Each structure stands twice: as structure tokens, then as C-alpha cells.
Simulated assay, not measured.
Amino acid sequence: MSETHATVNPGAPVFPPGRYGRRREPGRRRPVLRALLVVALLAALGLGAAKLYSQYGDPDYRAEVITYTGITDSRVLVDFRVTVPPGGSATCLLRARAHDGAEVGHSEVTVTAGPGRRHVTARHEVPTTARPFIGEVLRCRPAG
């Protein structure tokens, strides 16, 4: 006997028997499979991030200001130390700022470590357009 409008709840679709196969159970999910896929995706993203950081990150180039001296109306001498890979070289950007924080001069300098050495100590004069208050190293990157 086929279903009629009198035996079916209003709003429910009516399908001919045997025509569309067996219907799936509602609410049947696979949480373990979904969790494994999320874990695999996160692991792949983590490995990709680690590879890119090791390839393009430059944690070996660190600079620190030792002192800044020789302050006049037109210059400041900056003594700084740079950590580089053994025997490597770095290009550092030095900056001089006035008392109000405005940049009054900057200079780029390349330093090279001796064979087998990782630390370079250098002194560089930064020319300025006004009297500086401080001399600093903004960043160092591989020379080239």
C-alpha cells in the first residue's frame, strides 16, 4: 500500500517506495575522523611554518648598543656589538634621534666577523641634521 496524504505528516516529502534507495540515519557523524583530519592539518601547518622560519628568519643577527658618545650638533658616535654566523657579515641600520624622539640622522654600515668569530664590535659615526640625544641600532640583516 502506498502512502497517501492522509497517512503522511504535513510538510514531510513523499517518495515512491524503493525508488531512491535507503535513507541515511540523521545525526550519524564521524567525530574521530574529523578530529584526525584537524590534527593532521595543524601538524602540516606547523611543519610548514617551522620550515619557512628556518629558511627566511634571521635569528642569528642580533645587535646591541654598547654606548653612544661624541654628541655634537652634527654627529653621534655609536659603539655596538653584532652577533653573526661564524665568519659572517651583517648590514646594520643606525639611527640618531633628538630629545623629542624625531629622527635626525641615520646611516647604514656593513660589519664583518673574523674567521671563526661570531661577534663583531664596531664604532660608526652617524651624521645628523640637528643635535642628537641618543644613537641606536635599529636592525641588522645579512649583508648582500
Results as ranks from 00 to 15, higher is better:
A130T: 12
G114K: 03
V14L: 12
T91H: 00
A12S: 04
S2C: 07
R139E: 07
G101A: 08
D60C: 05
G116R: 01
R24T: 11
R30G: 10
V109F: 11
L93Y: 10
Y61S: 04
R81T: 13
V39M: 09
G105M: 04
V111N: 04
R22D: 15
Y53T: 14
R34E: 10
T4R: 08
E103I: 14
C140A: 01
R30Q: 14
P31A: 03
V38K: 04
S54H: 07
R123A: 13
R75A: 09
A130R: 15
R23I: 14
P17M: 01
T4Q: 06
L93N: 08
F80T: 08
P115Q: 02
R118S: 14
R23G: 10
E125R: 07
A96I: 10
R62W: 10
T72N: 09
R62I: 07
S74M: 01
A122D: 13
P85Q: 00
E25Q: 10
V137F: 01
E25P: 02
G105S: 05
R75W: 00
Y53C: 13
E3Y: 09
P26T: 00
V126L: 06
D73V: 00
S54R: 12
G135R: 11
A113T: 03
V137T: 03
A43W: 12
P59K: 06
L37Q: 11
H106T: 10
G116Q: 00
R30T: 03
Q55H: 08
G57C: 01
Y56T: 15
S2W: 13
H99D: 11
T112A: 07
I71H: 07
G21Y: 04
D58R: 10
P17E: 02
A122L: 03
P31Q: 00
V104Y: 01
R29M: 02
R22Q: 15
A44R: 01
R28I: 05
V32C: 02
A6G: 06
R131D: 05
T129E: 15
G135D: 15
Y68T: 09
R81C: 09
K51Q: 09
V126Q: 02
G57M: 01
P142N: 00
L47S: 12
V38C: 04
T4H: 02
G88S: 09
A35R: 05
R24S: 07
I71C: 01
V111A: 02
V109E: 15
R19D: 12
T67K: 15
R24Q: 05
D73A: 06
T110M: 00
P31C: 06
V78W: 11
A63C: 07
I134F: 02
L52S: 11
G114V: 04
L94C: 01
L37R: 08
G27W: 02
I71L: 08
T110P: 08
T83I: 10
K51G: 08
V14Q: 10
P127E: 08
K51E: 14
R97N: 14
G70T: 03
F15P: 08
E108Q: 11
D79A: 14
T72S: 14
R29A: 05
V32T: 09
A122N: 15
R118T: 15
R19C: 09
P10T: 15
G101P: 00
D73C: 02
